[in-house]
Amino acid sequence: MVDPAAKFSIRAFHVHYGQFSALRDLNLEILANEIFTIIGPANSGKTTFLHSLNRLIDLVPASRCRGEISLDGINIRHGLEIESLRRKVGIVFALPLPLPISIFENVVYGLRMQGIRDPRLLNEAVERSLRESYLWEEVKDRLRTPAMNLSGGQQQRLCMARILAGQPDVLLFDEPTSGLDPISTARIEETLLILKKKYTIILVTNNVAQAARVGDRTAFFLMGDMIEVSDTGKMFTTPADQRTSDYITGKFG
């Protein structure tokens, strides 16, 4: 039965790309205000899973999904318009991908698409979300300059601000620090720990230590199967499955 505290509940969920089975029989509950981390080697279905949660997977023409995902008890395929689902479930990609427009316009892009034009509302949203992603102080004097001029770490925090502006429920992060240096990485991780007070966070990472540092619960994916899921502390001390243990101790991956 659906746990009332669950943000996302995933039931018997499968994804196929043509003949290839990318994700098999996934059953999982993700709770409100937790940082849920997902680890596993490349091609394990982690990104596929993340893209299923806000239906970006629909952009892959050959993809087929089976099973059910619901957000706050509402089926994301039938109960919600795709645009509002994507506003509620924001995503930050592995590479910083600002649009080639100004910092300001990047942040308000989603709001403008909702039809919000009031400059006061837009200005407020920009300041609030840039403060939340700890970028405000660095860019407040050059909001109208191109976002492409920012450094990689700044661009990634801009991408966070961009989804925060739409006041989402859930933040998806797909290896958000894979292209960044250690200092930028630390800043992003700090930000995540603060953001979880307000948002539910799902973090895919190829960095096992990062999962250990920030995760409340962690799942281990391998070749399209979820091998195990448990509290992060428990997984890193007493993993239930040998394969999990092999992966987190660096025997493969």
């Binding site: 994507r86 924001g90 990609f93 991908l97 892009y109 698409m113 909702q114």
Partner: peptide, 9 residues
């Protein structure tokens, strides 16, 4: 992808 992910149609 980015635009769609931000809720644009």
């Amino acid at each position: 992808t980015v635009s769609l992910s931000l809720g644009a149609s």
